[in-house]
Every structure is written in C-alpha cells, then in structure tokens.
Design a protein around this nucleic acid. Sequence first.
DNA 1: CTCGAATTGATAGACGTAGATCAGAATAAG
DNA 2: CTTATTCTGATCTACGTCTATCAATTCGAG
Lengths: 346, 346
Amino acid sequence: MTIRKPTLHDVARTAGLSYATVDRVLNGRGGVAQKSVQRVRQAVDLLGYQRDELAAMLSRRRSYRFRFHLPAGDHGFYRALRAAVDAEALARRGERVEIVVTESPALDADALAEGLEALEHGDCHGVAVVAVDTPRVTRAIARLTELGIPVVTLVSDAGGRAAHVGIDNLVAGRTAGRLVEIAHRGRGGRVLPVIGALTQTDHRDRLSGATEVLAGGGIEVLPALTVQDRGDLMAAMAGKALAATPGVSGIYSIGAGNRGLIPVLAGLGERRPFVVLHELTPFTRAALGEGLIDAVIDQNPRREVALGLDAMKAIADGRTGGALTVTPAIYLRDNLPPEAASGGTT
Amino acid sequence: MTIRKPTLHDVARTAGLSYATVDRVLNGRGGVAQKSVQRVRQAVDLLGYQRDELAAMLSRRRSYRFRFHLPAGDHGFYRALRAAVDAEALARRGERVEIVVTESPALDADALAEGLEALEHGDCHGVAVVAVDTPRVTRAIARLTELGIPVVTLVSDAGGRAAHVGIDNLVAGRTAGRLVEIAHRGRGGRVLPVIGALTQTDHRDRLSGATEVLAGGGIEVLPALTVQDRGDLMAAMAGKALAATPGVSGIYSIGAGNRGLIPVLAGLGERRPFVVLHELTPFTRAALGEGLIDAVIDQNPRREVALGLDAMKAIADGRTGGALTVTPAIYLRDNLPPEAASGGTT
DNA sequence: CTCGAATTGATAGACGTAGATCAGAATAAG
DNA sequence: CTTATTCTGATCTACGTCTATCAATTCGAG
C-alpha cells in the first residue's frame, strides 16, 4: 500500500500543538511563541511534511486569468506563437490558469494601444503582449500597471513593462554568424544580410551580433538589404543584389518575408550561398527539408509562452520571476522537431 | 471581480438534473437515460464547464510515487541527468508526484538488475531506468511489469519496457554529420569518428547516421577509434591517430571520455580539425567557450526526464503516452543556455 | 493576587470533486 | 394493476488546506 503522506494534522499531533497553532506558524500569521515555532519546525522536519499545494490552491480558491494580446497576421511565426499559447493553455488546465487571447493587426501600434486601453481593473491578473515600442503603447502599459495589472512583453519589448521574455537578439545574431563562419572555415567570403528595417532594435541587434562574429572570421559583410519584412520586396531586391554582387557565399535573413527568398534560391541551383534564417515555421521547415536553406534559428515560441506565464504568475503572487531569456535553438534539416508540438514543453 | 468558473453543481442546475446524475454521466458510471446524457452535454457546452483537475485529484486522493534508477558515476552527463531529475521533482511538487532516486554503478548490468529485483509490488507506480540491455535486466523488467509496475527506459533502451524515452541516435548522428559537412562545404576532407564501443547500439546508430550524411558530402570517413568511453584511452589513441593520419579535417566524438580529447586538441593549435561531440556538461561547455571544440549535440536530459515522468503517469492512468522522442539540440559557443537550469522546463 | 496581553485550542465552513448509499420516481414487462 | 427494472434525486463523507471566530489558558508586570 502507499504510505500516506503526513498532513498538517499529523504535524500538529507530533508537535503536541493544535492545528491552529501549526497553521499560524506555517502561514506566518504571527502571535506564536518562539518555542512553539521551534516545535513545529522540528515536527515538520521529522515527518518530512510537505504542504499539499493542490489542496492549498483549492482552499485558497486562487485562480489566475491571464491575457495574451497577440499580433494577427499570416506570419508563420505569429501563427506558431498563437499555437504555442493554445497548447500551453491546454497543458496548464488543472493549474487554475485561464488564458484569454486577443489580437490586433501586427506592428500596428495604435491598434495595440487601443486593445490595452480597453482593459479595466480586475479584468485579469496579467497581460502578455508582443509589444511595439511607441509612446502611446508605453502609456497604455503604465496605465495597466497602475490598475494593478502587470504587463509582460513577449518577443519584442516596450517601455514600462514589468518583465520581458524573449531571446537575446545579439546572441541569436552571433549564433547565426557562427554557423555562417563554420560554413566558411578560413576561406573568406561575402555575406549578404537581409533585414526588415534598421529601425527595429531586434533586427539591428541580430545584425551586429552576426557582424561581430563574421568580422572575426575574416568574412566580408555586405551592406544589409532592407526589405520591410515583405516577401515581394525580398524577391525583387535579393534577386537583383545577387546578380549585381559577385561571389556572395552566405545569406543571413534577419527578419520576415522569407517566402520571397526561396524562389530566388531555387533559381541558383547547386552552388547557392549558405543560407541562415529565423523562425521555424511550416514554410521554413519545408525549405530546410528540400535543402534550399541550411539552418534556421528559432526562438522557441512554446518556451517563451511558458516563461511569460510563469513570469505573470510570479508577479501576481508577489514573487520575483526566474529566467526570462530563451536560448535560440539551431535547426538543421536533420534535427527538426516533430510537426505537432514544435519542440514544446510536455 | 473574477468570474467564478462553472462547477459541476452549475452544470447540474442548468441541465435541470441532479448533481448525482451529472456525476454519473461525466464519470461514465452508466445507468443514465440517453436524453439525460444529452442534456448534460449541452449544459457542459453551454457553460464551457471544465473539470477542476485539482479538486478531482484531491478527492480521488490519487498520488504517484515514481522511482528513477540512475547510473552513479562522475560522467558529466550522468550528473546532468541526476540534476534534471532533482529539478523536475522540485518543479512537480504540487502535482502529487513523489520521486525517489536510487543509483547503481554505471554500465553495471548486474547491479542494475539487483536494484530492480529488490522492488516489490506496491513499492511505486513506475520505474524509470537508464538501462543496460542484458537478459537478466530484461527478466527483471518483465518481473516488475508482472507486478504491475511499468518500466520506462531512459536514454538507453532494453527489452520488456513499457516505453522508451530518448533521442533517436540516427538523427543525432546525422545532425553531427551535417555540422561537419557544413564545415567542409564542398571541399573534401577526412573525418575521424571516435566511439565507446561498436557493441553499443546507440553508438553504432550515431556513427551510421553521421556516415550517411558525410558520404553524401563527399567526405572520407576514417575507421572509428574505439576508446571504451575512457578519457585515458581517448588521449592516447586520438593523439596517435592524428599523428599517423595526415589531413584529418574533422573529429566526431560519439561517446564519453572527452576529457582525454581536449588536451590533444589544445596541442594542435589554430588549425585543429572541426570537432563535434555529445552532451552539454560543465566540461564541454568550457571547451566550447574556449574554442577548443566547435559544436555539442545535447540530448536535453531535463526534457527526457519530463517526458519519462509523463509516460509513467500516462501508463499509471491507463492512458497511452504522447511523444517519447527528444530532439537533439545543437549548441555552439554562442547559444549556450544559462548554467543553472540547462535548458529546462519552466 | 489581579488585570491585561500574549498565546493557544477547538471548531466550523469553505474550495470542487469523488464515491457511495438509499429512497423515490419513471418506465417497461407481465 | 402489479411487479421488476431503469433511472433519478438527495445526501453524506472524504481529500488537505485556508480562513475565521471565540473561548480558554498561560504569562508577565504591577
């Protein structure tokens, strides 16, 4: 038979005190003599008592309602993020966390701000948001904080938030750069970075991370192509740049719009440059599988969502959160995670 | 205010039935008229009722006791595995899972078998074990299964187990091979594989995975060095082999004993071969940081432990488990996870 | 010794579900 | 219409904790 785990009543009995006193000690309600505190602690140690968090939660009738405000849009990454939130919500049923998802158009700061401005006190215990950093958004975040709703930024940061969960883009850039450097191994080469916009901090960070590593490897970094995260611009500009620039041996696509890049690569045939890009989506996964690109740096949305939830919970409980940085993962065609739960957490 | 989530009583009320009937439906106790079943389902849908798993667990007074039987020894990987078990145990307090850890000397099949043979019926709800595949171990596992204790093998497999959690070593080998291939990019080269023993299935799988990819890249794969997972043999044999074989451009260390490899590499200076090895440990992490090796393939022990627990839980509940395969992760010097919680879960 | 303060005990009602029993109602079979 | 058979309702105890209240005890100071 299973040995029954000791309960608070057991502790009380072996301490020779009442349940009430033990409770006062364990929940720090004060008004207990020192020697009683000692006896309780001894009994706890002796029995190896551990509070049954399950029963505690139930009794405390504590439950959380968190809101994820996500970018709408057909970006593969946004879709993956959304799926990660759903999956995490499913996995956490039974943990008394309720997750509400709302959306607004991607990169639309005003729509985002409006969404946040609509929230009232008591609406939820925390908001996770893929932020756009504008004054209005910062104000909206500050207002929520005043209302007692902590805001956690996800993926991309903004002012006023209680915590930020995301990858370190310098690290991501360095990782990409390292892959490119490995592919050159001593031979020189010319690498073409493609970027959404230089005004985006995350893109700038990735670029400087990569540049730093490549410079150390004696590889020339060409001026970055700016394609506004748009596939059509990507196709047009990448094609032109490759035609105009001889000897491009590597491409690092820093932002979105990779749909436009693939046809260009397919047209180059066998001796295409070494290609690294970001975010594992059905699309990039297929490109990897077909050998049209070489590596994908992924920020692991599933884990970001999990950490974001943990952070909101920690703040709601008055604790301070743990790790908030996600390590970017490297995917080659051989180590792709199974389709369904893209590298998820249980 | 927080909106109260609907309870079973609410469902009963809106269905116009008693709590008892609703309970009969939801817990499949039978003896309920079809139209009542319908009404219950409708009410559930209407209210969006979700069972409070917490309260259910409490009431059902179900709790799990699982045992992890791990290899003792100073292998960095075993230490990481042990740490992962501890971390996971901590993370799951509050989920009514108790975790007991026992150890026996690594790779000692008889010690392992003895450990398993000592377990009795009712001792625990499941055992996770890093197996050694011998007839005696298989018998011990079969006996446990008969006693109603399912056995899950972790990392390395054996006969008779209910489930196996680990990486696909062919995939791991292909991934390593791909990295080496990328580092060669068209130029030919000679790669020296170093292996524990060819009798170990996992090592053989990794080797053939890598060979498969490298052959496709026009790279010569030298005969594998067999070093018995021992650092001293590794140092001696690797040094000799490198001296005797000209033009070694890559090393793939498949098993353990990498402590012996590092000094050899350090002695080669700048133009050392490209080096890939397995398992992220403080030691390999340091070697990466110092640029003595280029990449580490890691099987993510934390995630393996988490999946193993899930599997045991699933089997104990009579469900069938989900994913049991861990995707190997690639670490370069730039994307190392933070020391503490090596890429953990929550 | 006396009074107030500090400390302790006893207990009861929640939280939401599980599991069980027993009586009563509806329904079908005879 | 009676009996046997489904089906349903009502209710109780339990899980281990939290929260609250009220009474009882001990203690120290004066």
